[in-house]
């Protein structure tokens, strides 16, 4: 549901990078998306197609999505575990004192342009 707003922010960031690097036409944007970022990749690419078509700089460009795994750290036993499989409760010691190490990223990794 928030994917369209995120796409507008990606386009704005790409426009800034393009201006700084004298890019005329972007052919692809590579996005790193954490497994628990709450962003749905399919919706995001649909929104991208719709919104990118309206901007000369990015029209027709591809949004490539690289998924980053979510890992949670447990303060109870000090171990890390995969977030998607176990959620917020540590599978080793059942502690709830856990926090996300990685997995909520929504970042632009690189831009392919000419």
């Amino acid at each position: 549901m928030h994917e369209l707003g995120i796409v507008f922010h990606i386009i704005r960031s790409v426009e800034q990078v393009a201006a700084e690097n004298n890019l005329e036409k972007v052919s692809a944007v590579v996005l790193e998306l954490g497994e628990v970022s709450g962003v749905v990749p399919d919706y995001l690419t649909d929104c991208w197609r719709w919104a990118a078509a309206k901007e000369e700089l990015v029209s027709g460009s591809e949004l490539k999505i690289e998924t980053l795994p979510a890992v949670t750290h447990c303060d109870g036993c000090g171990r890390d575990y995969p977030t998607v499989a176990h959620g917020r409760t540590c599978p080793h010691c059942r502690s709830e004192k856990t926090w996300l190490l990685t997995g909520n990223e929504v970042s632009i990794k690189e831009i392919e342009a000419y």
Partner: peptide, 15 residues
């Protein structure tokens, strides 16, 4: 022209 790859490494929310 040859395709250039610009490394960005920036959160979408940073701006």
């Amino acid at each position: 022209d040859q395709v250039r790859v610009i490394e960005v490494k920036q959160s979408v929310f940073a701006d």
